[in-house]
């Protein structure tokens, strides 16, 4: 049986790798996939760490946000030739070689210094321990309506920004 710690550490590393990949790559499609991967891995990590509420929000809200980012990014850029793309990619890789190193160093420092947790807990159950399903369906009507509105906004955005403007 695999140790929990090992799984968590592996997931975190994967997520970091995906995040770095998203930042470094010059192809939009790959960046989009990287971001989605990061988001998905983060959701899993959150769920495993006992925070299903946050996991649910990560999935739903980031989905809306990501679509808008890519819409604007795609509209902003012009296509490069594939030679130019490859050249650019190696440039970027050379420029950002230190990124993984930085992440590892930061991890080591955080692990070594580990800030002591000294929360005087509220007497009784804290919000972090509640079940996400019961929260959403019983007490959070307002936020559900909000989520609907965000999705609607995202939909309008996609319709509006993707459509070619009428000329004349």
């Amino acid at each position: 049986m695999i140790d929990d710690l090992v799984v968590n550490a592996a997931l975190c590393m994967l997520m970091t790798a995906a995040a770095i990949w998203t930042v470094v790559t010059v192809r939009l499609l790959r960046a989009a996939i990287g971001l989605a991967l990061t988001s998905a891995l983060l959701t899993i990590v959150m769920y495993r760490f006992g925070s299903p509420l946050a996991a649910a929000f990560e999935l739903s809200v980031c989905a809306g946000l990501i679509s808008v980012i890519f819409v604007s990014a795609i509209t902003l850029t012009s296509r490069l030739s594939s030679d130019r793309l490859n050249q650019r990619e190696s440039e970027v890789l050379r420029r950002f070689w230190f990124l993984p190193l930085l992440v590892i160093i930061a991890g080591v420092i955080l692990y070594k210094t580990s800030i002591p947790i000294e929360i005087i807990a509220f007497e009784g159950k804290t919000a972090a321990q509640d079940d996400v399903r019961s929260i959403i369906w019983n007490t959070r009507h307002l936020d559900l309506i909000g989520q609907i509105a965000i999705l609607l906004a995202g939909a309008i955005g996609v319709v509006l920004l993707f459509k070619e403007r009428k000329h004349g």
Binding site: V61, A153, L160, L161
Partner: peptide
């Protein structure tokens, strides 16, 4: 809820700013 509703406003305003494309 504060976070959710701020986000509604924010997403609408992203699109409003880019309205002219």
């Amino acid at each position: 809820s504060l976070y959710v509703f701020i986000e509604i406003t924010a997403v609408s305003s992203f699109i409003l700013i880019a309205f002219d494309r």
